[in-house]
Structure formats: C-alpha cells, structure tokens
Design a protein around this nucleic acid. Structure first.
Lengths: 229, 229
DNA sequence: TCCTGGTTAACTGTTGACAGTTTGCGATTC
DNA sequence: GAATCGCAAACTGTCAACAGTTAACCAGGA
C-alpha cells in the first residue's frame, strides 16, 4: 500500500481559483476592506483579482452558506450585516459551545495546555500595559486553541463560523473593550479547571466567561437602540 | 412609507437557478438518489435538470460549505460520506444544542407546545403499532418544532445542518431502530419540563435524550469496526 | 418645486465554448 | 502472461459573450 498518494492528494488540496477567491473575499471582509452591507461587484472584483466572474460567483455562493454573504435575486451578492440582537444570539451560542469545548478539553487534558499557559502569560502582560490591540489578537488565539483541545472538527467549524459572523456587526469596535484584567483572570480559572480535569467546572467557567463578554458588550452598546442609519 | 415593497421582495426571494438546483441536489442526497461518496457529474446533472453547468457548480459550492458535498481539485464534486466516529461526534454536538434549545424553550414557554403535544400523541400511537417508519418522520418533526421553540435562527441552522450530515452515513438504517416506547417517554418528560418552565431540567433531559439515541446507535453498530470497503 | 414616465447605462444570471487534467484502454515490451 | 508506456475519451476549471433585470438619470407637465 502506498499511503503517500493520499498525502500528496491532501497537499494539493483546494488549489482551485474559487477557493482562493473565497479566502480573499473572506479576508477582505475581516479586515474591513469590504464592509458590512456593501455590495460585491463581480466585474470589478474579477478585474481586480485577474480572474473571470465564474470563480467569483462560486466563491460568493460558498460564503453565502457560511452566512458571510447574502444573495438577492437580480441584485447580486452583499456582505451580510448583523444587528445587535443577532450579535447577542451569537454570544449565547458561543457560550454554550465554549462551555462544551472546555468540558471536553478537561476530559482529555493530556498536556496541550502549555500553549494556553503561554498565551495566558502574554495576555497578562498586555493587560498590564493596557495594550488592547495586542490583547484582542491574543484573546482570539487563546479561544482558538481552547477549541482545538476539544478535538472536535465540527465544534471548531461552528465556533469559527460564529466568530466570523461577529465581524459582520457594524460597530466592531464595541466588542473590543473588555476588562482585560478580569477577562484574563477568568482565562486562568478555566485553564486550571482543565488541567485538573474538572469537567463540570471547566464547562461552567467557559460558558460564563463568554456570557460576561456578552454583558460587557451590552453595557458598551447600551446607547444604541437601533442600528438603523 | 410603503412597507409592502420589502414584503414583495422577500417573497420573490431566491428564485435563482443555483438555489433551486441546490435544493434539488439536497433532496437527491436526502432520499438517496445520490448516495454518500458518489461523484456528481456536472454535465449529466445539467442535462437532466435542463440547465447549464454554471448553476450546478454554484449549487455544489453552496452545499460544500454545508458539508454535504466535497470538492476535489480536477476531479469534481462528491457527495460527502461520514464514518462512525463522525456520526458519534454529531450526536454529541446535537445533544448539547438540543439541551440548550430545551432550556430556551422552557424559558419562553408561552404556549407553542400544543403542536408538540399533538406529535407526542401520534408518536405514542406509532410506537404501539410498531410503525417504525411513521415514528421516524414524526420524530424528525418533533425535534424540529422543539428547536423552533427556542427561537434562535442560528441554533436552528446549526441543528438542521447536523441532522442533514447524519444522512451522509452509509448505513443510514442503523439510526432508525430506536426503542420507540422509551424514546417517547423521554419526549413526554421533556415536554413537561418545558411546560413547567423548568429550564435546568429541560436542558438536562434534552441533552440526555439525544445521548441515549447515540447509545442506541452504538449498540446497533457494534459489529462494524471500520466502514472501509 | 415636485411628481411622473420613459430611456439608458450598469450589472447580474445564464449559457456555450475552450483549455488543461485525469483516467481507462490498448499496444508494446520484457 | 504481466507490466509499462502512451494515447484518447471524458470531465473539470475557466473564460467570454448574451439576455434579462434593475436603477439612476433626465425631460416634461402639474
């Protein structure tokens, strides 16, 4: 049996234009080059990326079922935008999934927490220096690795999807002002619970950590009643 | 303000060929006309549906990010197939999400349970008559309405997605032999908890109900070690 | 000044054609 | 007879063009 074959096959993966374009559009959305609600002009984007409209459309359709893009008949593809209530819904779901991830992580806590420990330390530094930007990226990484520990590809896909959708909220900035010190204390407690293999406690802490993120957002967003322009 | 405009717009929704084709392919997968692992021949399908290959490809890309279809470079689109372990993973996730749904349902239990009561009754009849086929469809409906009560579109989308993936397991039949009587007793308990507004209990029961479904499957599938052909 | 109707430009939805890759079949060689 | 190489058919990936729809703009009239 030559098992190298499948490896090579896996390596060349998705080298189709559509996939590359999809990734491109996704990064455009993430870094704000395409902002929430904006229309995606196929012809312009095609010229910009040096491809024809076919792959653009395929990519958009792919992103549409991830919830990042919305198709309107005869009007085209739009970057989706979500309102406050939807963002709150996402927080709730993330809370449940994060709790579950922590539980699983605690159940199979054979090492693997070293990266988290490291990130936790870095975040402490960022918190002390009041470096919100650094904390923000580290926080994303922390939560990503947390999910990885659960070793459930679908759980990861779901969580990733939710976090991506998070960027479709117009006032993204409102999500970026955590009480860093408090937030990182919670991270530490979660870590400890996982390392101790305390599944129930890990689940509870993970869930309430995201919930308190939600509460922080609600407090920050208390002024805006409706995001209508 | 003329608000009829948006309604009309919502009505004409997704009347694009790609969406229709996507639905078509999905039903083909669900009813087994396209079986797990099978390749989707674009030209043939296009001729069959009387459209060109473009919409077919867009539809396939859409389904690919739902996990129903898999693209391999230069080889085309394949109906995905999942193995035993993946199915177990799906059970676990569904358990968590169902539990959460039941909790939310209990929290907002203003009526709405009448349909569930009705379904519960019908399922009792099906169980008595030992009508597994009827029970199977009723069960799907029951769980769908359960999720609806939670009033969270994303939660519903996630659960729907997981249930669809369920059909990608080759021996679908292995999932269709519940202990109908016992299963429906659990349904009744869940219903009662929701109607009493007992969130915690509803969550716990919802979760363990799906878990016991998982256990039943594991028992039924104990013979197959690996689904390798 | 405001509304109405028609015209035109821009853009999407779909199609058919072309180029490159894969795969299976058959001929050739050991 | 078995294995290898090469060719040809089939199919995917991509592109460019056509048809239909939308939306904005301008002119004319109340």
């Amino acid at each position: 049996m030559i098992s190298d074959g499948s490896d090579l096959l896996a390596l060349r993966k998705n080298n189709t234009l559509s996939s590359l374009v999809a990734e491109k559009i996704e990064t455009y959305i993430m870094d704000g080059r395409l902002s929430a609600g904006e229309r995606i002009n196929e012809a312009v984007l095609a010229r910009e990326l040096g491809v024809s409209r076919g792959p653009i459309r395929e990519a958009a359709r792919l992103l549409s079922s991830q919830g990042l893009v919305e198709f309107v008949a005869n009007k085209g593809a739009f970057v989706r935008s979500i309102d406050r209530d939807e963002l709150l819904e996402i927080y709730d779901l993330r809370a449940v999934l994060t709790g579950y991830a922590c539980m699983r992580a605690a159940a199979r806590h054979k090492d693997g927490t070293s990266i988290l420990r490291d990130l936790h330390k870095q975040m402490s530094d960022a918190a002390e220096n009041n470096d919100a930007a650094a904390y923000y990226t580290l926080n994303l990484q922390f939560h990503e690795h947390l999910i990885n520990l659960a070793q459930s590809p679908r759980l990861k896909a779901m969580t990733d999807g939710l976090i991506k959708e998070t960027h479709l909220f117009r006032q993204v900035s409102l999500q970026r002002h955590p009480d860093m010190a408090q937030s990182n204390i919670e991270h530490g407690e979660i870590l400890a619970a996982i390392e101790n293999g305390d599944e129930k406690r890990a689940q509870k802490l993970g869930e309430s950590h995201v919930r308190s993120g939600k509460k922080r957002f609600e407090k920050a967003a208390v002024n805006l009643v409706s995001t209508e322009d």
